[in-house]
Design a protein around this nucleic acid. Sequence first.
DNA 1: TTTGATATACGAATATATTCGTACATTAGT
DNA 2: ACTAATGTACGAATATATTCGTATATCAAA
Lengths: 127, 127
Amino acid sequence: MSSQNTIKPTESELEILQILWEKGDCTVREVHEILTQHKEAGYTTTLKIMQLMQEKGLVRRDTSSKTHIYSALASQQKTQEHLLSKLIDNAFSGSAARLVMQALGNHSASKDEIEAIKKYLNDLDYK
Amino acid sequence: MSSQNTIKPTESELEILQILWEKGDCTVREVHEILTQHKEAGYTTTLKIMQLMQEKGLVRRDTSSKTHIYSALASQQKTQEHLLSKLIDNAFSGSAARLVMQALGNHSASKDEIEAIKKYLNDLDYK
DNA sequence: TTTGATATACGAATATATTCGTACATTAGT
DNA sequence: ACTAATGTACGAATATATTCGTATATCAAA
């Protein structure tokens, strides 16, 4: 079972992980461009964070050429799992149901999304 | 509309808020006892955090007697809303549905919980 | 009234996260 | 070959969160 993802990403790290999850391999420049669509940040700041992430094992990088290529090592699945269960414990008194309802109630899931969830719930029953 | 809850509690603060949400009014001692069921912590550490929370406006305290009485100011609802939407944005690419399914899938919601959610979803339809 | 238990206030140490300046290397264009 | 652009490495400043020691006040019991 390879290396664990006990490591919890910080907020900045999470922003970067998300980009890597979506885009796959990226240079620092690419990540940085995307990041700065939302917020201000210096290039070396992004670089530094990604370097630290590499040391922590959250990402891997290919340094064979001058411009390094980064990709996510932390699995999206595991990371989401971890953050979610932390939130459930921390803010929802351990009740997944409460969290779910809150999410559905406020975050205006679309009709499609709600249908998908219903289907999902029904499938759960048959296990 | 009173004071906003733009303030985001830290992890330690959240632990304390949860206790206050559940128990209502508490002394530092009471909160501390509950906290230390799960983890190690010095009394003055808990005290300090609660004092800082008061300064930040997360809690209010009654100092009329020697032993101060604390209660939550940050609403559970608002705080959950905020943390949840942050998580959805930060780790689930903005998709509430993905988060919900992840929550249901892994966090082993009980049969009762799942029933409650189904009911909830059906009610949503009629609005 | 002396002592012990319990309380708050406060300051400081430690840890962690974030930000960025500066130095230096490499590459591409002129 | 020189210069500008672009990249990494590294160290330091800043911000924030966490932890706890120590001083001091209050109260109750002996």
